[in-house]
Simulated scan of single mutants.
Amino acid sequence: MSNPFCFKQFQVYHNKTAHKIGTDAVLLGAWIDISFKPNQILDVGTGSGIIALMMAQRSFAEQIDAIEIQAEAFQECVGNFENSPWNDRLFCYHGDVQDLVQEPDLKYDLILSNPPFFEEQQPKFDFRQQAREQHTLNYIKLINSVVKLIHSKGHFAVILPYEKHQDFISLAKDKGLYLNKITQVKGRAKANFKRSLMQFSYAQSSIDKDELILEITRHQYTEAYKSLIQDFYLNL
């Protein structure tokens, strides 16, 4: 077994999941506004469980669920949950998010997802590619599931490639979910935007917009980025 990725309050094994611990998941888990104090949280396509674990550290939510379709990643996630300080609040389902839609009484205050975004077909198909392709969890399917699982006053947050965010905003609006907050992310000041962090709800409001730059130079991080993730990464 490989060594775990160690955070300040928990550790995560991620050698079996297609989604290794990376900047995207940590950004979403640290960025999401939880000032409305969600009590039921769902992480869709959880992989190793990193975002759900971050929610357990950041909130007092009594129910933090995750769902993962890939069998080995699911098993790894369960182990990470069991070994965390919050194992009594974390639960992982094995299956597709649409399986949860069949449960009529299952509703969440907050749903998060770091969905797959790799669209190009590759000649050799493996589980890592499957986890990243929109065939596994495409945007329309994700939004359709969210609107069936979220409370009327709930929130939904997602991180996407920058070039996909406008399409996603339109798809969400078609289902009655309005963009409330967006942060455009770039690696360095002169680089192009790479990611969009977005938070939606059924409430239409003025949109809170800003930008986040991660690095000044290689491994020299901006104060804004360090402030966002300082409760999680070691040596910050």
Results as ranks from 00 to 15, higher is better:
K226R: 14
F60A: 04
I159V: 15
A71D: 09
L234E: 14
P161G: 15
I21G: 07
E72Y: 06
D210C: 08
Q230E: 11
N144V: 01
N80C: 07
F7W: 05
S113V: 07
Q9E: 00
Q122F: 02
I143M: 03
Y139M: 12
F36M: 15
I213C: 11
Y108M: 11
H14A: 09
H14K: 06
L236H: 06
S152Y: 13
S2E: 06
F232Y: 14
I150T: 14
N138H: 02
L236I: 12
S48E: 07
F127Y: 04
S152Q: 15
F193D: 02
L27T: 05
L228Y: 14
L171I: 13
A18F: 00
E68L: 09
N39W: 00
F193Y: 04
A66Y: 09
K153A: 10
S206P: 03
F127A: 10
L177S: 15
Q184D: 04
A189E: 11
A131R: 09
K175Y: 05
F117S: 04
T183D: 04
N87C: 10
F74N: 02
A71I: 08
I21A: 04
P116H: 09
F10A: 06
R195N: 12
R89G: 12
G22R: 05
F5Y: 11
N39K: 02
L177A: 13
Q129I: 10
T46N: 06
E76Y: 15
I229T: 14
F5P: 07
D174W: 07
Y221H: 06
Y162V: 10
Q134Y: 15
L212Q: 06
T23L: 05
G22L: 07
Y225K: 03
A56F: 11
T222S: 04
I140P: 01
K164P: 11
M198D: 12
A172I: 10
D24P: 05
F81A: 12
G29R: 00
K141Y: 04
G47C: 11
V78I: 04
I69P: 00
I213D: 00
F91Y: 08
Q11Y: 00
F193M: 01
N83C: 10
L160N: 04
A203H: 03
N114V: 06
L42C: 08
P123A: 07
A30F: 09
I67P: 11
F156T: 14
K8T: 06
D174R: 13
D24W: 00
V12I: 04
A224H: 13
A71K: 05
Q204Y: 15
L228E: 08
E76S: 02
D208M: 11
K148Y: 00
E76H: 09
S227D: 07
Y233L: 13
I41C: 10
N39H: 01
I169S: 15
P104H: 02
M198I: 15
E120R: 08
V78Q: 13
Q199M: 12
I182R: 00
H19I: 03
S2L: 03
E62S: 14
I50S: 11
L53G: 08
F5R: 02
Q11V: 00
